[in-house]
Amino acid sequence: MIELKDIHVTFNKDTPLETKALRGVDLAVPKGEFLTVIGSNGAGKSTSLNVMAGIAPVLQGSLRVGQNDMTNWPVQKRARSISRVFQDPKMGTCEDLTILENFALAYGRTTPRGFKFAVDPSIRLSVAERLSLLKLGLEDRLDDKVGLLSGGQRQAVSLLMATTGDTQVLLLDEHTAALDPKTADFVLQITNSIVRELKLTAVMVTHSMAQALNTGDRTIMFHQGKIIFDVAGAERDKMTVEDLLHLFKREQGEELADDSLLLG
């Protein structure tokens, strides 16, 4: 479904600020797989999601999604099949628009927009129906501006918006990180049920190793712009957070050893 081949991303190339964010990433996520992604700060997790969404400039390598080579597609064109939920709850929705209007925008992602009124009774009905699944009472507040909602409510709304229409790929970049633990759990739960119910191919970045192991089918770890660890199936089921932490430390330790060798 998603296939990254030898992806290199370098920010501020040929300047003193040059950062090699991705240094040869190969990754294939088959259709219907729910992949979780971990790694230390600056390891390249967000950048690899941004490569899929079309926001990060690809220096080298290619990206295929489904039948299409999307390496050079603009963001809005990819949006027909790839949708995302941002880390910041403010980013995923438009606060000056009502809940209903936000959903109307989201429906436009997969079905072309026109000069028809964006909001009509049939949309109102289907949005209310979807929102009622959240059990947050939002179905009664369709005409409230999104700016009036709490962070958790907004993130739940973003998630539903990102999964309207015939979305195939869902990208989640630490989408629960800005929420309090209880709300984060709630949003994670609905994420799980939506991904499973709609059989989406999903990539979720998380800062919590426990979350990474307990959610989805497969876990990868980024370190300094590369995937250093990839586990799935029975091996993953056996794995504990301690194992993961251990692995993580060992990888970093090796890096240090390499450096000291070089220096020595």
Partner: peptide
Amino acid sequence: AMAEANGIN
């Protein structure tokens, strides 16, 4: 950013 992510040019 949200507009682009929703397929708006």
